[in-house]
Nucleic acid binder design. Structure first.
Lengths: 247, 247
DNA sequence: CGGTCCCTTGATAAACATCAAATGCAGTGG
DNA sequence: CCACTGCATTTGATGTTTATCAAGGGACCG
């Protein structure tokens, strides 16, 4: 698969030559659930581009608890935050949560490509800026939204971003993984689901069913500070608009 | 003040010419508490570099609540996440919390400088990557640490990063602002302070007094997943080591 | 002296985590 | 096909943490 298909934003405006060259330097890895792409503390020798599947970034406390940081989805990079640091150790562990395929770029190659092609650096910078914004939203939602609202918001975004039919679409990973990504325990997740049933959200296995988008929009988006700036909400209100969803 | 003094990481390795040129394009703004650098939704015409003071990024929900996103400290940029987006509206409001001075760069100038000087782009990328890492830590701490632990961790970092004497150093802003930065209500902050007294932390007005760093290290860092990767903790254990503190 | 602002303290309630146990479901091997 | 095992999910009971509401104290400033 060509790089431009996997992560269009990252490789946008990059010359075909450069793409081929970068692609040639990458190894493809196939991974199954439970595998690790890398572990916290290892020397960060590679940057990974997730092609399919799902990866969880996490760390462990001295007391032995695991703290989930982030769920990485296809098209996103892993190890990119370590790309430019001098002390090059991964700052988190990356565990496969769904059977995955990932491209593995040697760090040095990626850095060279960045120097040689400023466009690549520019794209990286933009992706990074978006990630910062998304994490701000995330942090804010953790503090202001209830579990059920966070879940509802996530499902709405998932549906809109992938252009799924609200009546029926699949979760990209298990409920437990989703719960950890949303910063809650599986039990809380399960109970949050119950509350969403009132708003016409049903989740059987991995199949999502959202019948009443309006109910969701009023009962969730009202509490979210993105409000009018939320691309998904704009989409709901005016589905015709050409959509360029950021987050 | 030269740019290199204000934000050494951002302008590192930038040619003196370029610095002067960038500096010349900037206006200096003096602001007092309650002023706004910009408001959510306005056209993002500028990038700001905070020279002194403190700024709070926040948004408002349709229901009228304010949601704090981040406290910006001197040396950091504001509006940088909007720098590369096509739809150029600020995604948050920036309110002055401490009398501040800020440099105001026209967005276009900053972008041109980036194109002309790849080093600047590289520095931006590194800063952005660090910010992502810091926000991951932040999110994790919100989910795993109690209020008093978050506060203790913050004070430790503040003390170590600025090379203050633990026996007595000042807070950079008021307790309320700090509370909002740590994602808690002022009441919770106040009670958290009470719990930290057991660990030898006293806070009178804006003066901090930390007598027993070891107690803090055992009772807080033990619960934090950064553990050995935390620069501050390394510093506490081996103060002689040359310190290059990231966050 | 009265005001405001900031912080503290107390009482109460909401949200969530935690613990424990039951249920369901898929794959395995008989 | 059926029991069996392991894992994910649900449900219930309970405890902890924090937000919220309400009121009081203290400093600063006119």
């Amino acid at each position: 698969m060509p790089l431009a298909k996997i992560a269009p934003d990252l490789f946008a405006d990059l010359s075909p030559d450069a793409r081929v060259q970068l692609g040639a330097s990458a190894q493809t890895r196939h991974l199954t659930k439970g595998d690790h792409l890398f572990r916290c503390g290892q020397v960060a020798g590679h940057v990974f581009l997730l092609v399919s599947g799902a990866v969880r970034l996490y760390r462990e406390t001295p007391e032995g608890k695991v703290a989930g940081l982030h769920i990485v989805m296809p098209g996103q990079l892993l190890g990119e935050t370590e790309l430019l640091e001098d002390s090059c150790h991964y700052s988190a562990s990356a565990e496969i949560m769904e059977p995955a395929r990932a491209l593995m770029f040697p760090r040095a190659v990626f850095r060279l490509a960045m120097s040689a092609h400023p466009v690549l650096m520019l794209n990286l910078l933009q992706l990074s800026a978006r990630q910062v914004q998304q994490m701000r939203r995330d942090r804010e939602q953790l503090l202001t939204l209830k579990a059920s609202q966070r879940l509802g918001c996530f499902l709405m975004h998932l549906c809109a971003e992938r252009d799924y039919a609200p009546e029926r679409f699949p979760l990209p990973y298990t409920k437990s993984v989703l719960a950890s990504g949303l910063g809650m325990e599986p039990e809380t997740f399960s109970r949050a689901l119950g509350q969403l049933k009132d708003m016409g959200v049903h989740l059987k296995g991995r199949e999502v069913e959202m019948s009443d988008m309006e109910a969701i929009e009023t009962r969730i988006c009202q509490a979210c500070s993105l409000s009018d700036n939320c691309a998904v909400r704009q989409y709901l209100q005016e589905p015709d608009t050409a959509m360029r969803l950021v987050s």
